[in-house]
Amino acid sequence: MENEKLEPSSKLRHLNKLRWLSLTIVFSMLIILLFVHLYQTYEAAHAYDLLTPTEKMISDTVETLTSPFVKDPEELSVIKGNTWSGTFFGLKISDPLSVLGQIFASLSFYWPFVLTALIPLIATLLLGRFYCGWICPATFIYELNDNLAAWLRKAGLPVSRRKLDRRIKYVVLAVGLVLSVYFGTVMFGSIYPPAIVGREIYYAIALGGFGAGAVFFLLTLLFDLMVSRRGFCRYVCPGGALYSLLGRYRLFRIKRNVATCNDCAKCNVVCQFGLDPLQDDFGMECNNCTACIAVCPTDALSFTVSMHDNKYQGPGHLGHKYRKENEG
């Protein structure tokens, strides 16, 4: 009976599965869209008989999968691009960082482009770094990389979990903007992991090989393993810096309910961003990944509508420390 009572029942704990679904869909779309692109070029060439066996296989597969839905392969262009900038049924959506980069590189506002970042901008103002946790195709790989780190740890290999200064990423953002002005070119595209991942998948599938960005991305994976857990996202990523700033006064944030918290500290262990939910410290970095909600045995963590984090509310009321303090 005791156990049954403790069994958590909040629906919010399933959000983490939903998030993985979202990440998986985004990542697989990046790959699928390029095979669709290849298929479109094969169709445009009107030369099915001249295709290589592999190309024929790609063409046949995509045709079988898409022909029930579209008559003309040209119609498949309604979804194009990647998370850095994409077209979704006529709606162009771009990463706010790309817009900021262009504003600084060209020192002008090109409104049709600035407006493409409007939807992500509003969403970020409301939800903070949700992009980092729910959409970013690099996060998909970084989280798997973090699982790898856990295995390596179990195998007895050293995996570093150093803590650096969170503010480094704001310096990266500022330096990137200054360099964009100096060189007159958008520098972020080359060091921003989601942009790199989208582009390198394209290069690998459609243009026959990875480019220079892939090397950089591998280095960031090594950085995460050898320097700090999810280090690149937390300390270097200029996009993360921008979203942190935009999400400073986000409306929806995860908070701890001190009355049901039992101080088990599982949330702190599971948080890949190294935040401190146990002490009510989520800050600007929280990417709403909801892993802490999913792991909490007493449903003490949940989303709330509020502009600020709570100050430390003291030990959880179901924990030993609180009981001792109040009984003694």
């Binding site: 691009g81 990647n82 850095w84 980069g101 262009q102 590189a105 070119t185 958008v186 080359s190 582009r199």
Partner: peptide, 9 residues
């Protein structure tokens, strides 16, 4: 160069 964001579209 000042306008292109390298999205590859």
């Amino acid at each position: 160069l000042s306008k292109c964001i390298r999205c590859g579209k």
